[in-house]
Simulated assay, not measured.
Amino acid sequence: MENLHIVFWLFKDIGWCLIYKPLGIVMIFPTLIISIVIAFRTRHMVSELCHNLAITFWITANSYWMISEFMAIDTLPVYSWLTYKHLALIPFFIGVFCLAYYYLIWQPKHPNEIETM
């Protein structure tokens, strides 16, 4: 499933790069759904869960950014210097916070814990 997830992700970004909107938009759904399923399946392992949640938020941000470009609203201002493209920073930062939690909080408190499936 993880390998298929990468294939969908690549096709989504190829659609974005080629400005082929149907491919880019359609590929959001299997890419995002599989990343959510992978995160759910790894929920018992904090390390994997945090990394897979970061990937899910990355795909969300990436997909929003792509759609904002397709709709030609990416450079429109939301407030002052903030544009619609900048709103993609919200899920990007949520992903960073997932990883920061793991590396700065959880892992130091559990240095000897070995995670298994």
Results as ranks from 00 to 15, higher is better:
Thr31Asn: 04
Leu82Asp: 09
Thr31His: 05
Tyr103Pro: 04
Ala72Gly: 05
Glu113Lys: 00
Trp106Glu: 06
Pro77Cys: 10
Thr42Pro: 01
Thr31Pro: 02
Ile59Met: 05
Phe92Tyr: 15
Ser47Ile: 00
Phe92Glu: 06
Phe29Lys: 01
His51Met: 08
Lys109Gly: 06
Asp74Thr: 13
His110Leu: 00
Pro108Asn: 03
Val37Tyr: 11
Lys21Cys: 05
Leu4Met: 11
Ser68Arg: 04
Ile33Lys: 03
Thr60His: 07
Tyr84Asp: 07
Leu76Pro: 04
Ala54Trp: 01
Phe11Leu: 15
Pro22Phe: 09
Trp65Tyr: 15
Ser47Phe: 04
Ala39Ser: 12
Leu76Glu: 15
Ala100Glu: 04
Trp9Lys: 10
Glu2Gln: 13
Phe70Lys: 06
Arg43Val: 04
Leu49Ser: 03
Ile25Ser: 05
Glu48Met: 09
Pro77Glu: 15
Ser35Thr: 09
Asn3Glu: 14
Glu69Cys: 07
Val37Thr: 05
Leu87Phe: 04
Val37His: 04
Trp106Thr: 09
Val26Phe: 15
Leu99Asn: 10
Thr42Leu: 08
Phe57Ile: 03
Leu53Lys: 01
Ile28Glu: 00
Ile73Glu: 07
His5Met: 07
Lys85Arg: 15
Leu49Met: 13
Ala39Phe: 01
Met1Phe: 05
Ile105Trp: 14
Leu18His: 00
Ile67Met: 01
Ala100Val: 14
Ser35Gln: 06
Ile73Gly: 04
Ile14Asp: 08
Arg43Gly: 08
Ile36Leu: 12
Thr116Lys: 13
Ile73Thr: 10
Arg41Leu: 12
Cys50Pro: 03
Gly95Asp: 11
Pro22His: 02
Val37Asn: 04
Phe70Ile: 06
Phe93Lys: 05
Thr56Glu: 02
Tyr103Gly: 07
Leu104Asn: 12
Glu115His: 06
Ala100Phe: 14
His5Asn: 10
Thr83Gln: 03
Tyr20Ala: 09
Leu32Ala: 12
Ile28Thr: 08
Ile38Asp: 04
Met27Asn: 02
Leu87Ser: 05
Met27His: 04
Glu48Lys: 07
Cys17Ser: 11
Pro91Asp: 12
Glu69Gln: 14
Ile25Gly: 02
Trp106Tyr: 15
Arg43Glu: 08
Ala100Ile: 13
Ile94His: 10
Asn3Gln: 12
Asp13Ser: 08
Phe93Cys: 11
Cys50Ala: 14
Asn112Ile: 02
Leu4Phe: 09
Ser80Lys: 15
His51Thr: 05
Ile55Val: 11
Thr56Cys: 03
Phe93Gly: 07
Asp74Arg: 13
Tyr102Thr: 02
Ser63Lys: 03
Phe92Gly: 07
Met117Val: 08
Met27Ser: 10
Ser35Ala: 12
Phe40Ser: 12
Leu32Gly: 04
Val26Met: 10
Trp9Ile: 10
Ser80Tyr: 13
Ile38Trp: 01
Asn112Arg: 00
Ile67Pro: 01
Leu104Phe: 15
Pro91Gly: 11
Thr31Arg: 05
Thr31Gly: 11
Gln107Val: 02
Thr75Trp: 09
Leu49His: 03
Asn112Thr: 00
Asn112Leu: 01
Val37Phe: 11
Glu2Asp: 14
Leu32Glu: 06
Met71Thr: 13
Ala39Met: 06
Val7Thr: 10
